[in-house]
């Protein structure tokens, strides 16, 4: 194991983390402001990817496709918020779980119905193809650097939005005291719709960017949804900062763990079983991490107690 390889894997972990951040930022905002457990957040990831694939196949432009993912997921978000989600805010968490679970079924099967059962094609633009030399010996995928860049850009954007703008003030007020904010005469249902659409569009963007290097298919959102929940719980629910740090932590732990654990175990046991055992523990690692963090800090790293 060379230090170059280690550094490259670290970048991979960070890239995975920034992508998780796009998913979890929306999820944590929606929970923080509206108190909604949204299991269907992964569906917006899927909707974003499918919108992008559709537009890319029509226009051939990746950038238009990214735009489509943002707007497609946002439109879906607005519609779903107005028709269904709005009625759930005052309900029990469990009702929300059931309703959004049902939404997953509805949206996944709806998308499959319309687009068919086979994965769609979505590729990265030509000028982001290939690798870029960074530092001496390290070469790294341009597109993955682009993902890291986009993730950081959005993190900064969210920071400015929340700390510097009028909308941000309302969001923070909503997180602290829901009754108060409506008493102040702010149109709370509009605020909720905006926050929900914002979360949905971030998830949609993540879906399109990742769909371009993985696959655009039905059911792509659920594994990532579970990871996003892991992230916001580790970071502390409602905290954007927590989501960012949690994302990077999960991304790096998962990547580094699954590569270096088998190598580490090879010191103690023979190669074949080290590979096997190492991969097994590697796939459990982020859950072990989450359990450990929660045992030590029961409300996450930056959560309010």
């Amino acid at each position: 194991m060379t230090s170059i390889l280690f550094f490259e894997q670290l970048l991979n972990g960070i890239q995975f983390g920034t992508m998780l951040f796009l998913m979890s930022a929306g999820l944590t905002l929606i929970f923080g402001v509206m108190g909604l457990i949204n299991l269907a957040h992964g569906s917006f990831y899927m909707i974003g990817a499918f919108s992008a694939a559709l537009i890319a196949s029509l226009t051939g432009s990746f950038w238009l496709a990214l735009l489509a993912s943002l707007s497609g997921a946002a439109i879906a978000g607005v519609l779903i918020e107005i028709i269904i989600i709005r009625r759930l805010y005052r309900r029990d968490h469990l009702d929300q779980v059931l309703a959004t679970f049902a939404l997953i079924l509805l949206l996944s099967e709806g998308v499959r119905w319309y687009f068919g059962a086979f994965p769609l094609y979505l590729d990265i633009p030509e000028n982001l193809n290939g690798t870029l030399p960074i530092l001496d010996d390290i070469i790294y995928s341009k597109y993955r650097l682009f993902i890291i860049f986009m993730g950081l850009l959005i993190a900064v954007g969210l920071y400015i939005l929340i700390s510097k703008t009028r909308l941000g003030v309302r969001i923070r007020a909503g997180q602290n005291d829901r009754q108060m904010i409506s008493a102040l005469g702010i149109d709370i249902s509009k605020l909720y719709t905006i926050v929900f659409a914002l979360g949905a569009s971030l998830a949609g963007l993540a879906g399109a960017m990742i769909g371009a290097i993985q696959s655009v298919e039905v059911g792509m959102g659920e594994p990532i949804l579970i990871l996003a929940f892991v992230v916001i719980v580790i970071g502390g629910i409602g905290s954007i900062k927590g989501a960012l740090i949690g994302s990077i932590l999960v991304g790096v732990t998962d990547t580094i763990g699954r590569i270096f654990l088998p190598e580490l175990l090879k010191i103690f046991m023979e190669s074949a079983s080290a590979t096997s055992v190492g991969s097994s523990i590697g796939s459990m690692l982020i859950y072990i991490l989450m359990a450990l963090i929660l045992i030590i800090k029961p409300s996450g790293l930056f959560g309010k107690t």
Binding site: N12, R144, S215, M220, R258, S279, S283
Partner: peptide
């Protein structure tokens, strides 16, 4: 090299780095 990846995993950046090395 011989690697077992996580079932359902879709990002292979880490594995591809290993292949390169």
């Amino acid at each position: 090299g011989e690697i077992y990846t996580k079932l359902g995993q879709k990002d292979y950046a880490a594995e591809i780095a290993q292949i390169r090395a």
